[in-house]
């Protein structure tokens, strides 16, 4: 299947899903009008990665901001990863947020409350 890499745009994040390292990263801003369309290849990649995953899968979420329609798509992505967890891989989530950005910190905590995966909350100066 290969790696999935997508360059960021003013409305969409940079995506780097690496099948050799098991590190899946989204970084930047996610505010497309049609989030379902944007996230479709990400979901498909995760589904196919799940056939033969690495022993540890790390999902690095480094989003500066996302709109509400992306939030639903991000939840779907988390749910796919939740299903992978325990099936030949251990899934970990690193949730990055910028200093003093309580809104993004809370968003991470909300996903953590819904999704049964270990979350690590990481505060950074700038994403």
């Amino acid at each position: 299947m290969g790696n999935l890499s997508m360059e960021g745009s003013p409305k969409t994040p940079t995506v780097n899903f690496n099948e050799e390292s098991g590190v899946l990263e989204v970084r930047g801003r996610s505010i497309p009008e049609n989030s379902v369309e944007f996230y479709k290849p990400l979901n498909e990649w995760v589904e196919s990665y799940g056939q033969s995953p690495k022993s540890v899968t790390t999902f690095d979420v480094k989003l500066e901001y996302f709109n509400t329609s992306s939030s639903k798509c991000i939840l779907d992505l988390f749910k796919l990863l939740e299903n992978l967890d325990g099936n030949n891989t251990e899934v970990k989530v690193n949730w990055y947020f910028e200093e003093d950005d309580e809104d993004m910190e809370e968003a991470g905590e909300d996903y953590q409350a819904i999704i049964n995966l270990p979350f690590k909350m990481i505060e950074v100066e700038e994403i």
């Binding site: 509400t68 939030s71 639903k72 809370e106």
Partner: peptide, 21 residues
């Protein structure tokens, strides 16, 4: 915040990707 979380997790989403959020 609770309403947001509940709406996010209720599984409903329109064809446009809007979710009532």
């Amino acid at each position: 915040r609770e309403l947001y979380k509940a709406t996010l997790n209720d599984g409903k989403v329109s064809s446009k990707g809007t979710a009532g959020l």
